[in-house]
């Protein structure tokens, strides 16, 4: 059992030693690929994700006559490496789960980026997952945010994401059940959890996905913890972007 409830209530520590409200170590690097317009590498615990941005560049496909061509089109492609999980598995391109993730990320950023500034063009986000240990969609969203900032594409605010879960299973209406922040794979398999992405420091939710059963009364707690976790993520990502900017300015010369 990843979350042995007997030991949890003793010291209130999860199996990896975290408390209920602690994020895993989140590190991010910006501008990792010089050749790309924007790039990033992000780790949330053991989940490692790389993202590159190409664009805004000329629209692919049938040139002028396209749907909604008064704004930029956002395309996302995710490729999950075969060695990223515990068992080696080559995930096909037409995997429905992947297409749903791609659609989610594209839709979230279509609202966030100022696409009207680049009509008839395409912004391509390419995500590569190197290692999976829970919070996959959240890590992808965070990596995309950093990569887009590196590419200099104007946006309303950071989109920061993280996962939140609940200690007891859905059936027990345990009022004292703690909400958990930032779940790893084992916790995601056993416990109900949701992935939430917010716009910067505000409480407005951009993405909210939950695929497991939970009592409706517990949703509020999970959502509150998730939203606050996103704010912490934003602070970390912002620090990365600023550090890079300062480094660039310091390094520039006459």
């Amino acid at each position: 059992m990843p979350l042995d409830t007997s030991t949890y209530s003793l010291a209130l520590l999860r199996l990896d030693g975290r408390r209920w409200n602690e994020l895993r170590r989140l590190t991010a690097q910006i501008s990792t690929q010089v050749a790309a317009d924007g790039s990033s590498y992000l780790e949330m615990g053991n989940t490692k994700v790389m993202c590159t941005v190409a664009g805004p560049s000329e629209a692919k496909g049938a040139g002028g006559v396209r749907l909604g061509n008064d704004r930029a089109d956002i395309r996302v492609s995710i490729s999950i490496a075969g060695f990223s999980g515990v068992d080696r598995k080559k995930s096909g391109r037409n995997d429905k789960r992947l297409m749903e993730m791609q659609h989610t990320i594209a839709s979230a950023f279509a609202q966030n980026l100022f696409t009207k500034l680049y009509p008839h063009s395409t912004i391509s986000l390419s995500i590569h997952v190197l290692s999976q240990d829970g919070s996959l969609l959240a890590a992808c969203i965070n990596a995309c945010t950093i990569a887009l900032i590196d590419a200099g594409v104007p946006m309303h605010d950071y989109i920061c994401a993280c996962t939140a879960g609940s200690t007891s299973s859905y059936s027990s209406n345990d009022e004292t059940a703690d909400p958990l922040l930032d779940l790893n794979t084992m916790e995601e398999q056993e416990l109900p959890f949701l992935t939430v992405a917010t716009m910067g420091e505000s409480d407005s939710v951009s993405v909210l996905i939950m695929e497991t059963k939970v009592q409706v009364g517990r949703l509020e707690g999970m959502l509150a913890v998730g939203v606050d976790g996103c704010k912490q993520v934003r602070a970390i990502l912002d620090g990365v972007a600023r550090a890079r900017g300062t480094k660039m300015l310091e390094g520039s010369r006459m």
Binding site: L23, L181, D228, Q232
Partner: peptide, 10 residues
């Protein structure tokens, strides 16, 4: 709810 900041991360 008050959330404690993750101490080790930053």
């Amino acid at each position: 709810i008050t959330i404690l900041a993750p101490a080790p991360a930053e």
